[in-house]
Design a protein around this nucleic acid. Structure first.
Lengths: 247, 247
DNA sequence: CGGTAGGGATTGTTGAACAATTCCACAAGA
DNA sequence: TCTTGTGGAATTGTTCAACAATCCCTACCG
């Protein structure tokens, strides 16, 4: 094919790596841009879990038609950020305690496998260290929101050690889902703060090329975090039961 | 709330567990049903990788509007079965060799972690054995298509050992993507057949409660399969290069 | 031979319309 | 009082038609 020949010529003229900028040129459809806006809003808690997203209202507010908006909804539903109920609309998802357990089950598998693979090779772990420092900085300035974000990024970098595009995407979605969990239990400050020193410990093991040691620490880390979240869910459920009984 | 009180009464009258049948009453939207049809067609090779799916043609053929069809397309695009190119349409995805490598990278992580967790506990592994037998049967009767299907199911059962809904979904998508790979290289008969005895070996280790042993076998299994597929890709690329040079 | 200007086809997006379904309030009945 | 219909209003599900934006292909011209 002529097309193939053409491609070869381009490859050979020294622009390799240019395709990384593909995302900048690639125009996105309206539906994708709308999904991006909604995704961000959900992440920052503008739309709270359980809330309904009206096609009419949001469509008017964003200036897009219902059809386009529905395409965006589909996207986010597939990411488990929204729950679609036939003839009732879409709602910001409320992760159940089973979801939390399942999310951590997957995180343990993915993240532990990723750090287990690190060796003493002269690999650069600057990106990970960067996220740890970001967390420290946020804690020092008392910026709790940034602290949570930095913590999420730290774990995404850990997962990225596996070097798999699909793993990155999966972890990205898991953490987005976790943000929903944080929103429904509030008090994220105390939650993230206590894990800061452990981030350092894990980073140390990684930089030392001790994958097995890092895995062990990380597993304990994830187990503790899960237990804490599940406990908070139990409290919530208990409180709800007491409230309904009192009424 | 009155509603809560109502719920409590129902809970106590012995219908606990009924919500498991929720899926049976849940009607699906047209878009989801359309996506199901297309997904099946793609899996069985009716739509071949690289082929374009015309909104007009398929919409007419299935009797749904373009808008509804587009919602279905979004669903499948998100599953990596279709590739959406702005203003050009949707195409059945052509997995690259990088995709193959990445798919196997994830499979190694997921499936190995799943089998590693099995212990000597009196768990029932009937479902796995069932899939192995299915593969044997297909091979005996020379039904190569069923053989491939049975093999896929076998691996899905392995992954299911992790007991995670999200892992199951992920593996389901990975195998759907792999089907695309098989379609573009044809000759799936020989590919799957040679792995039949290894299925048995792995099942044996699992039934013996030897998770570590099973993991070792499975890892080798996946490495070999990946190597074979990558090799086939290289051949294909070589053939394509020769063809374009001759032209 | 390479560039380019048109024209046809396809997708992107909108707005309106109607059917199907859910929700809510209120009344009727046990 | 509690349950059980029964309306109408509101919302979603789906289709249709229209137009803009973009792409692909061909023919033309330097």
């Amino acid at each position: 094919m002529a097309g193939t020949l053409h491609d070869v010529v381009i490859e050979d003229s020294g622009v390799t790596g240019l395709e990384a900028d593909r995302g900048l040129v690639t125009r996105k459809s309206t539906a994708e841009r709308v999904a991006g806006v909604l995704r961000k809003r959900i992440a920052e808690g503008f739309f709270l879990p359980g809330g309904r997203l009206s096609e009419q209202d949001i469509g008017n507010a964003l200036g897009v038609s219902r059809n386009t908006l529905r395409e965006a909804f589909r996207l986010l539903t597939h990411e488990r950020l929204l729950a679609h109920e036939l003839n009732r609309g879409v709602f910001v998802r409320i992760p159940s305690v089973e979801d939390v357990v399942d999310i951590y089950r997957v995180r343990k598998i993915i993240e532990c496998a990723a750090v287990r693979g690190v060796t003493a090779k002269p690999a650069t772990f600057a990106r990970i260290k960067e996220k740890v420092d970001l967390g420290d900085e946020a804690a020092r300035t008392g910026n709790w929101k940034d602290l949570g974000t930095a913590n999420v990024w730290f774990h995404q970098e850990l997962a990225a050690l596996s070097g798999s595009e699909r793993v990155n995407e999966l972890v990205g979605r898991l953490t987005a889902e976790l943000r929903l969990v944080f929103h429904i239990m509030a008090e994220p400050r105390r939650f993230h703060e206590r894990y800061l020193p452990r981030n350092h410990e894990i980073l140390d093991r990684i930089e030392a090329g001790d994958g097995a040691g890092a895995e062990q620490l990380l597993m304990k880390y994830l187990e503790d975090a899960e237990e804490q979240l599940v406990g908070a869910y139990a409290e919530r459920a208990e409180a709800a039961r007491a409230a309904s009984a009192a009424e």
